[in-house]
Design a protein around this nucleic acid. Structure first.
Lengths: 342, 342
DNA sequence: GTGAAAGCGCTAACAG
DNA sequence: CTGTTAGCGCTTTCAC
């Protein structure tokens, strides 16, 4: 049996209210009483019952994070790192973190409703924003606190943090063009993801700037997994043997593409350039190391969590629509085009 | 404002108790009443307040999972997949999943205490069991429900699921020996992790069986990360140019080691064999694909979660100390030793 | 400074 | 079948 405030009160012959005040560190309490209460609380191994506290305070002191997984073998290191950032920030601020793992689509909205309606959490973190995002529409309608990692196409106003991935892909494309590449295939994220269009735009912009005609046949759509990159890598290289660079919109797909290219006998960095996006730890330990666009994943996790808590505590938050500039990381997977005239 | 049972009761002119019973699907209720209640509940958008329910039931219907991270850039795909398994199972059984991310050591025990004492969760999942594991000792002392992924050295009795990684490493070592390798370096997990010793034992057993003398200098200790494997790979290959195989005790370190070896000009699978453990999705898309020992990570997550829920609901659980046989997956990173006499 | 009393929203025992 | 009552453990008026 766990000790309650009542147990302490009984033992000390005082009221529960006094115990509560003593423990809560209120000022209108005799110093001596407070000390006695704290001592006995310690002896009895008292710990507050948070269910009771939550009911009374009408707050869960909990943040929700619903991870959009794709299938059982969802093993994206990006999310582990993001989760670590979110979790560490939440813990420091004394919030619990409620996590759900749900495939986008299959019952995902049910979970949002459950978290919101049953007051399981005080606020939510939304990631991988999508075009016309149902989740965001729902939360706005319910007027429920949330922060998104990613913008949305609807011109609604809500707090978010995003990385300027259009700019990031523009940079990486320009980098490849500078190296002499002219036929660059592009592996996009699923079209419905908001960042997919940002990134694709960055690619198009760079081509345009350099007077390279855009060719829709060179755009491929993947699922952000290694195996998806692998399949598309094979497809691209078998269809177009004159492609000299492949830009993937995340590292996992880039790694899969590298694998395909290597199977086909390409030497990466020499015969073909391949690039990613994210800079997961594996990117620098790939063979060859992967040129990519770095997002500060851990810090993003911390920051979106912090933004949400600021909203929940009505702390003046400053700007709550933040756009970070990512950083181009050049490694050996991109080199001068062979015979590129340099 | 959110609708409560009282609101429904008032609207219908009945008591809160009746509403509760109607909603709870009890049998001792008039069908007509139940229908009216449910209808009005729907209209008013009623959803139970779980804080109240938890207080009354003295159960949180929540499972806790504390992820032992190492540092900010913790990005182990293994854990994403494990989390997905745990999360999906919990959701199916209507349990919430509370996640904490804490570096082992730094305040980790505080989180366990918080979860247990403040009754934030009904049970806990413990992973990466350690020698003389503090967490397990604590939970046993508190008589708090938990299931561990991994055995422990104390011969205490508690529910766990583990993979027979001794057997797994034995298999992989034997496989390499069969290929003609005789000087095999070994990269261990940190010594304090329980599975580190199991795996090392498997390695030693295989050597012994084949009359290869054990050489302690060939044992290296890593941190289970790519960069750790990378550093040790460099160290091993610069010290011992006659090592022809390196056995890493997880895939991430194996991948890092491959990177080091490739930097040094080795052709993996030809000049040197490198193997891992886990079979994360990236293993099959490495270059060359990685020979490894497969653990059914997602299923392990599901199963430890299921075991815990069985304990919480007093469901006859059958065997609650389970040892799974992993599976050897042979890929191109291990081949015949060059000039090995085959 | 402290106690008494009320109430957060729900479930459960008991009466009728 | 339904209402009354009590209570989960805590915080928060309001008196004194």
């Amino acid at each position: 049996m766990v000790a309650t405030q009542k147990d302490i009160a009984d033992k000390l012959g005082i009221s529960v209210a006094t115990v509560s005040r003593a423990l809560g560190g209120y000022s209108d309490i005799a110093k001596s009483t407070q000390e006695r209460v704290k001592e006995v609380a310690g002896e009895m191994g008292y710990h507050p019952n948070i269910a009771a506290r939550r009911l009374q305070k009408q707050k869960a002191d909990t943040i929700g994070f619903i991870i959009p997984t794709h299938g059982p073998r969802f093993a994206d290191p990006f999310f582990t790192e993001l989760l670590t950032g979110i979790g560490n920030e939440a813990a420091e601020q004394n919030y619990d973190l409620l996590v759900s793992t749900r495939a986008a689509g299959s019952g995902e909205m049910k979970i949002y409703q459950r978290m919101v309606s049953e007051q399981r959490v005080d606020g939510l973190l939304v990631v991988r924003t999508r075009q016309n995002d149902q989740r965001i529409r729902y939360l706005l309608k319910k007027n429920f606190p949330f922060v998104a990692f990613g913008r949305s196409d609807t011109n609604t106003d809500y707090p978010y943090l995003d990385v300027d991935s259009q700019w990031g892909i523009y940079q990486i494309t320009q980098h490849l063009i500078d190296l002499g590449h002219e036929k660059l295939a592009y592996i996009s994220a699923p079209e419905k993801l908001q960042f997919a269009s940002h990134r694709l735009t960055g690619y198009k912009q760079a081509l345009e700037k350099n007077n390279i005609p855009y060719n829709a046949n060179l755009i491929f759509y993947g699922e952000l997994t290694e195996s998806s990159g692998y399949k598309l890598g094979h497809e691209i290289l078998s269809k177009y043997n004159d492609v000299t660079a492949i830009i993937a919109s995340n590292d996992l797909m880039a790694l899969g593409t590298m694998n395909a290219a290597q199977e086909l006998g390409y030497e990466i960095g020499e015969d073909i350039a391949i690039t990613g996006f994210d800079d997961i730890p594996l990117a620098s330990h790939a063979h060859p190391p992967l040129t990519t666009v770095q997002q500060p994943i851990y810090d993003i996790g911390r920051q979106i969590c912090r933004m949400l808590i600021q909203i929940l505590t009505n702390t003046p938050a400053g700007n709550n629509q933040i756009l970070l500039k990512p950083q181009l990381i050049i490694r050996a997977s991109s080199k001068n085009k062979k015979g590129g005239g340099f």
